[in-house]
Simulated assay, not measured.
Amino acid sequence: MRGEPGQADPAGAGCRADREELSRKLRLTALALGCATNKELCARFATVNPNTAFTAQNAYKWVGGKATPRLSSVYEDWARVLGEDLTASFVAAASFKEFAAAVQERHPLPEAALARLERDRVEGRAVPLDPATPAPEPRTQPLWQSNHLLCGGYLAMSYAWSRAETGNLILGRMEVEARPDGGLDASYTEKLFGRLVPMMGQVSGDGRAAQAVLRCSFSGRLYFLALQVPSPPANLVGGILVGSALHDPNARALAGRMLLVRDRSVGQLSGGLGYLPPDPARLDGEIARLGYADTPERQAASQALIDFLDRAPEVPMHQDVPQEAVLELAIAFDRLEVAAAPPVRIVTSR
C-alpha cells in the first residue's frame, strides 16, 4: 500500500430501486453466462481478476438486492466478464433495458429468460441464484455490539510511506458496515498509481479495541489495522496501520498512525483521495467537505490532527496511539457543529 501518486465509485449503498435494478442485471448476467449459482458467477469474475471484490459474501447481498457495490473495481470486472468492449460506467449507469440489449448482442439469451426477470420485477421478487443456500434467518432481536459504533464512512489520513512523498499526508476512504450476522466488514481505498486501490477485510473486536486484516486487491499484500473503539458519537477513530510500502525496492515493513474522521455530509462520502501537504488550511478544506461547520474550533482541530500524526512515540521502539491523546482529539471533533445541508434544488424540464 502507499505508493506513488495518482474516480469515485459509481454506486454507493444505493436506494431500494437501485438495489433491485442491480439484482436484475446480475441475474441476467448469470443467465447469459450459464451460471446457476452465486459460486459459479463469482468464479467467472475471478477469471478476469483473481482479487475481485465479487466474493460469495458480497454476491449474496448484491444478487439478493440487499446492497450495491461501493467499489468501482466491481463494475470494471463485470464489464470484462461480459465483453472487453463494454465499460464499467455503462454497466453501472445503464438502465436494465439498455443493459439487457447490450448483453443480448454479445451472449445468447432466450426471450423467456428476459420475460421471467420482468415478471419477477412486477411481482416484487428477487430470486436468489442458488435456492439451495438459505438466507440467514431474521433475528427477533437485532444483534448489536459496541463495535457497531464504527459503522459509517470516514476520511482516513496518515503519513505517506512512499519515499517520493515523504513528509506528505495520504488521504484515503474507509467504509465500515455491519453484516447480517452482526460482524463488521471494512473497505479502505487509496488513490495510487493513478487508480483506486481497494483493500477489504473483516473487523473483529472486544468492545474496546477493534482489529482488521485488509487484503490489497492491487498487490495481494495484507495490512493490519488496530483501532480504538470510540464512544458515541464516534466522530474520530485512532489506530495504527502495519504493512509494507508498495513503491519501494526493499518492500520495507512499516507502521504508522492513522486517524479516521467520520463523514457527516449528506450523500456519498465526499472527502478527497490522494496526497496532501501537512498544511492545516488544506486539511481544513477536506474536513469542511465532510460536513463540519466552518468555525475556529474546526480549524484548530485540523491542526491537532497533523500534530498528532507527526508526534514521535514516547518509546522510540514502539509506535503507539496514546488513548488520552485520541480522546482529546475525539472530544474536539465531537464539539464541532455539523453544517446545515444545502437546500434541495428541484429541476423541471419542459
Rank of each mutant, 00 (worst) to 15 (best):
L71S: 04
M258E: 08
D77M: 08
L283N: 03
V347A: 13
R335T: 10
E175V: 01
T87R: 09
P316E: 11
A255Q: 11
A186Q: 02
P296D: 12
H318M: 15
E118D: 13
P278E: 07
A160H: 06
L227P: 03
L149W: 11
E20M: 10
L196M: 12
H318T: 11
R119D: 12
A339G: 11
C42R: 05
A251E: 09
K39Q: 14
D263H: 12
D334Q: 09
L329P: 04
L155S: 07
G183D: 05
G256Y: 07
G14K: 04
A79M: 14
P198Y: 00
D206F: 13
L117V: 08
S231Q: 14
R289E: 11
R257L: 05
L129R: 01
G124T: 10
Y275G: 02
L327R: 14
T295G: 07
R221P: 00
A301F: 05
P296G: 11
P342F: 15
E297Q: 15
D263P: 02
N168D: 11
T37Q: 08
A46N: 02
G65K: 06
G65S: 09
A93G: 06
A102P: 01
G272D: 15
P5E: 05
M174L: 15
V338R: 11
G14I: 05
K25D: 11
S23N: 05
L196S: 02
A312T: 07
A234H: 06
M157N: 00
V266T: 09
G183T: 14
D181F: 04
R335A: 15
